[in-house]
């Protein structure tokens, strides 16, 4: 059922080409004002899904809702600002001319176009390069111009396909900050291979593989669902073979030495305080002990592994 907090909703969306199912029964929704991560390995169907949501491709089955309303492709393209993996820029145009051209392409009259261009320029920090030729800009700036063209439309929903791909770390941080600033005013569906970036920016995530939905939900829910292993780091003066053996037999915790630290890992749910109590009880002389935060990369690998099985 559509709800007022939903910006994008996919219900049973499939895409079939002769002899191949690119997408099969994809269901997920993106809440308004959130940044929603869209993950999957190469060829998983992320770009196909994004192209379908924008209206560039037509779905073979299923429905797509935008702002709670079921929309056909021609309606969808008016409601979404889209940055594809390759920014759609004309290298020979000046930044201002390009953005005004994009605004005009979307039917904005001169005054409105100027206002929306100014707003997009301010949001993306393009003031300095406004009168420069796009082809002469750095890759980071070209990506910003790409995001600005998606903003010029004035749509609440933005779809950004790999906006940080190929950028240097400084530019990645800048684009990340830019996306974070868009949060609230815009709903962003963001695809990226940089899982660390996703974990920093996104509230919710959806994972797909081989054109099928693997998981969707909040980052925390997904982590809980797929965090296969609990990891701890230990520094102890008396963590000898005997204690390690007992740890294995009693709590099923494996230990591995990394320099002067020990990495403890178990596939079972175990509370940190229970493990620490065990170590103290067995007089391991604990100097340092903490639970490692589950990395999205681990979750992603685990999810893909489960999906393959």
């Amino acid at each position: 059922m559509p709800n007022s907090t939903e910006a994008i909703g996919l219900v049973g969306v499939s895409k079939a080409y002769p002899g191949i199912n690119a997408l099969t029964d994809i269901n997920f929704s993106v809440s308004r004002g959130k940044v929603h991560g869209f993950l999957g390995p190469n060829g998983a169907g992320k770009s196909t899904t994004m192209n379908i949501i924008t209206g560039l491709l037509h779905e073979s089955a299923g429905t797509i809702r935008l702002m709670g309303q079921e929309c056909v492709p021609s309606e969808r393209k008016k409601l979404i600002g889209y940055l594809p993996e390759q920014p759609p820029i004309y290298p020979q145009m000046l930044v201002r001319d390009y953005l005004e051209f994009v605004a005009a392409l979307h039917g904005q009259k001169t005054t409105n176009a100027k206002n929306s261009v100014d707003k997009a320029v301010a949001s993306c920090g393009l003031e300095e390069v406004l009168n420069r030729m796009i082809g002469n800009l750095s890759k980071g700036y070209k990506q910003r111009v790409g995001i600005a063209q998606a903003l010029v439309l004035g749509a609440e929903i933005l779809i950004l396909d790999e906006p940080t791909v190929g950028l240097d770390p400084v530019s990645v941080t800048e684009i990340r900050n830019l996306i974070q600033n868009l949060k609230g005013e815009h709903t962003v569906l963001l695809s990226s291979h940089l899982l660390h970036e996703i974990s920093l920016v996104c509230d919710d995530i959806t994972m797909i593989n081989h054109g099928k939905l693997v998981a969707t939900g909040s980052l925390k829910e997904i982590e809980q669902k797929f965090s296969g292993a609990e990891r701890f780091t230990l520094k102890a003066d008396q963590f000898n073979q005997e204690i390690r053996q007992k740890l294995k037999t009693s709590l099923d915790v494996d230990s591995e030495q990394k320099n002067d630290l020990w990495s403890l890992q178990t596939n079972k749910k175990i509370e940190a305080k229970k493990l620490l109590a065990f170590l103290v009880e067995h007089q391991a002389d604990v100097v340092e002990f903490y639970q490692d935060k589950t990395q999205l990369e681990d979750v992603f690998k685990q999810a893909m592994k489960k999906e393959m099985q």
Binding site: L56, K77, K78, Y82, V102, L105, H106
Partner: peptide, 8 residues
């Protein structure tokens, strides 16, 4: 894609 997603 930019042209195809426009009003044209």
């Amino acid at each position: 894609g930019l042209l195809l997603l426009s009003n044209l």
